[in-house]
């Protein structure tokens, strides 16, 4: 187990974080400050399926790329590949890591570049019906991450979309990772799986784990029908990277093949994911969580509905 300092300290030096906060008040920062050596290899995982790993990966990657931080999004979900769809790249994935292993193409040829975001690349582990060579399953992504690190222009981030469960796909996906983003929904089944996954990650030496609580419905939280993000945090004991509300725009953005963070005008979930990206880049965590609407007479839909 590598007890590297950055892994031990998920909340590094609080002082710079404070500075960042105060800087925010004076408005108009244009980019977060990149913390730590690159490329940073981050696995997005959850244990339970369908909680939003792929959505999170696509949005973090797109957001990073827009901040001119080159990102490679790796779809390690060999069985249920989806990341290509969310990025709108499904027609362009011809070569995968399996082809690279077999010597049919080079790694740089298997990276699919996004049309609009020059700094965003997608790498798929294998084609849905083809099978990955068994023997180096667990080593494939370690090699890939290492090769990307040694490339002439290495990416700043390698984001790995982990498959559900804790079987061979999970083992493969976490193998090269140094940090983890643990996605969970505020319900007890997802939480139990998240706790287990956090335990396995820690056993593997990945100590820098942050949670994204996805699909939160403030109205239900207020009526105490749903756990709040703070309840979730209390149960897992991990720093919060973001709290993403339930948002119908998520499905629309999936259908359009454009990550939510690129939506104009911004949407609540897209904005939350964008904030999460900034925190990820700065190795920051949330210091406060939005809980409820302040009692203040307001127009019902607010600005957002006006823009829609």
């Amino acid at each position: 187990m590598a007890f590297a300092p950055p892994r031990l300290l998920p909340l590094p030096a609080p002082a710079p974080a404070r500075c960042a906060v105060s800087a925010r008040h004076h408005g108009g920062r244009t980019a977060p400050e990149l913390s730590g050596p690159t490329p940073r290899v981050v696995v997005v995982t959850s244990g339970k399926g369908g909680v939003g790993k792929t959505t999170t990966t696509a949005n973090l990657a797109a957001s990073l790329a827009r901040l001119s931080l080159p990102a490679v999004a790796v779809d390690a979900d060999a069985g249920l590949r989806n990341l290509d769809l969310l990025l709108g790249l499904e027609n362009r994935v011809h070569l995968t890591a399996a082809d690279v292993l077999a010597g049919d193409c080079r790694l740089d040829q298997a990276l699919v570049r996004h049309r609009a975001l020059q700094d965003l690349h997608l790498l798929c582990l294998s084609k849905p019906r083809s099978k990955l060579p068994l023997a180096f399953g667990s080593k494939t992504l370690t090699w890939v991450a290492d090769a990307l690190r040694r490339a002439p222009n290495p990416p700043a981030f390698i984001l790995i979309d982990c498959p559900a469960g804790v079987d061979a796909g999970f083992v493969t996906a976490i193998a090269p990772a140094e940090e983890a983003v643990l996605v969970t929904t505020p319900d007890i089944t997802a939480l139990r799986d998240a706790d287990r996954v956090a335990g396995l990650l820690e056993c593997d030496g990945i100590k820098d784990i942050k949670i994204i609580v996805n699909r939160v419905r403030p109205d239900l939280v207020k009526g105490e029908d749903m756990m709040s993000a703070l309840d979730v945090q209390e149960m897992l004991g991990l720093p919060l990277l973001g709290v993403v509300p339930e948002d119908t725009e998520v499905i629309r953005s999936t259908n359009r093949g454009v990550p939510l963070v690129l939506n104009d005008p911004p949407t609540p979930a897209g904005l939350a994911l964008e904030q999460a990206t900034w925190r990820l880049v700065e190795r920051d965590a949330m210091t406060a969580v939005m809980v409820e609407e302040q009692e203040r007479p307001k127009k019902k839909g607010g600005f957002f509905s006006f823009f829609k």
Binding site: R24, H25, G27, G28, R29, T30, A31, R66, L67, L87, G88, L89, H114, R115, A116, L117, R256, G257, V258, P259, L262, N263, D264, P265, P266, L271, E274, Q275, W278, F303, F304
Partner: peptide, 20 residues
């Protein structure tokens, strides 16, 4: 036609902008 083609939004600080 729409899939995968994003019109890029000019960037705003997600913690401090006219909406947030």
């Amino acid at each position: 036609g729409q899939r995968g083609t994003a019109k890029l939004r000019t960037y705003d600080d997600p913690f401090n902008n006219p909406l947030v």
